[in-house]
């Protein structure tokens, strides 16, 4: 996992809960907390930090990840406005994930192991398939909600199938509320 993921998390935790909280999370996870954006770090580090946060905030781990995704998105939007500007809706933005956004991510972070999504549009609902050993479907969900915030839209996400429930992939059904 690229260091930038930890950097963003630190930034958000420090912003919303104070720097001491981040220190506390590191201590509780037994991590030294040296993360540089371009470096690669073990996936478990993130799981440990999420676990520690879940304990500290008395909040389900999935909710922590979702919070992280939703709050990380504005930071992305600030850093990479050119990825957001061509779109006027969450839907068109999301549909460029595989073709535009992830290739751009790979340019910045060579070796980044970004997930592939498959998309299907069914009755106005975008059905997004996700398959990753990291099982970070909640992060995707958070990012989707963050994107909706960005474009001033509301959306609901159903997840009828999830790897964490033993399925072989996650399916996010995204409905846009008018």
């Amino acid at each position: 996992m690229k260091g930038v993921v930890f950097n963003l998390l630190e930034q958000l935790v420090a912003r919303d809960f104070g720097e001491d909280t981040w220190d506390a999370l590191l201590e509780a996870s037994g991590l030294d907390g040296v993360y540089t954006s371009l470096g690669s770090y073990p996936d478990e580090d993130l799981a440990k930090l999420v676990g520690a946060a879940s304990d500290a905030l008395a909040m389900p781990a999935d909710d922590v990840v979702l919070w992280y995704g939703r709050n990380a998105l504005p930071l992305f939007a600030e850093h990479y406005p050119q990825l957001f500007e061509p779109h006027d809706s969450t839907r068109s933005f999301v549909l460029t994930l595989n073709d535009i956004i992830h290739p751009e991510v790979r340019k910045l972070y060579p070796g980044a192991d970004v997930p592939e999504f498959d998309f299907e549009v069914r009755d106005g609902i975008v059905v997004m398939g996700y398959r990753s050993p990291r099982k970070l479907c909640s992060f995707a969900e958070g990012l989707l909600l963050g994107a909706a915030d960005h474009y001033g839209e509301r959306l609901t996400i159903e997840q009828p199938v999830c790897m964490k429930r033993g399925d072989d992939q996650c399916v996010l059904e995204i409905a846009f509320v008018r």
């Binding site: 050119q82 990825l83 500007e85 061509p86 779109h87 068109s92 549909l95 460029t96 073709d99 535009i100 751009e104």
Partner: peptide, 9 residues
Amino acid sequence: FNPAVAPDS
């Protein structure tokens, strides 16, 4: 052409 919107990168 690309079916998705894309910036001039």
